[in-house]
């Protein structure tokens, strides 16, 4: 068991974390490269920066958006994200691991806060899952990954909470910890290749849309030629 845990904590962690980082970097670079290519070809190179920035910032502070569409769901989503991002990054135990591994550290959340955030993340992940299953509109749109992600994200949070707060036998502890680590690593690996890539791409949505609306000049001719339609009537 110890060997398994060692393996999961060591090489497997480095591998999955690396996959996540490189994967995210890849989608980010592809996105920005695509935007650059488009911008280079655009007939009009002025971009409505004010509009883009305003529309992007609206979603970073979604206060006035929350109550417009699906308020209950939106609030769940925001609270879910807060715990989801803060807890793994700012947990004392995680920071300790970073310190012993690579020698860097940063301030941690006080334990009660981390515990409550963990619980809230679990609750809101469940709420999102249930909300999705019972909403006529969401369930109509949902793909498999949309249901699976909240459930998958539950795993490390539940197991983490168990390990940190419950007195369980040594072997149970080890199994739970192993699940904790492996599920987190699975998340790392899947993250860049699924919709969770949004965690790095979202800030560019408005920018990318605006660039796409900046068409290249003189495409009438080019498209006609490619489609063999030159001189065809309207």
């Amino acid at each position: 068991m110890d060997a398994w845990l060692e393996f999961a904590r060591g090489p497997l962690f480095r591998l999955s974390f690396g996959v996540m980082m490189l994967g995210l970097l890849r989608v980010l670079l592809l996105d920005l490269y695509g935007a650059w290519e488009a911008y280079r070809r655009a007939g009009d190179k002025t971009l409505p920066w004010g509009y883009i920035i305003r529309r992007t910032l609206v979603w970073f502070f979604p206060i006035n958006k929350v109550f417009k569409g699906r308020p209950f769901y939106s609030i769940c989503s925001i609270l879910f994200h807060i715990g989801l991002i803060l807890v793994p990054v700012l947990l004392f135990a995680h920071i300790q691991l970073w310190e012993s591994g690579v020698g860097i550290s940063w301030p941690a959340l006080p334990k009660p806060v981390a515990d409550w955030l963990t619980i809230s993340t679990i609750v809101f992940a469940l709420a999102l899952f249930i909300g999705r299953s019972f909403s006529r509109t969401s369930s109509f749109l949902s793909r498999k990954q949309d249901y699976l992600w909240p459930l998958l994200l539950l795993l490390p949070f539940v197991t983490g909470y168990v390990c940190a707060n419950m007195s369980v036998g040594a072997s149970t502890y080890q199994v739970t910890m192993l699940i904790h680590i492996l599920s987190a690593e699975l998340i790392f690996v899947l993250l860049p290749f699924t919709k969770i890539a949004h965690c790095i791409l979202l800030p560019f949505s408005q920018f990318v849309s605006c660039v796409a609306w900046r068409f290249p000049a003189d495409t009438d001719d080019a498209v006609c030629t490619t489609l063999n339609k030159k001189g065809a009537p309207v």
Binding site: V27, R70, S142, R143, K195, V208
Partner: peptide, 11 residues
């Protein structure tokens, strides 16, 4: 971009 980020939230 859109195929990567679409969250299917139905807002």
């Amino acid at each position: 971009h859109f195929i990567r980020v679409s969250a299917k939230c139905s807002r």
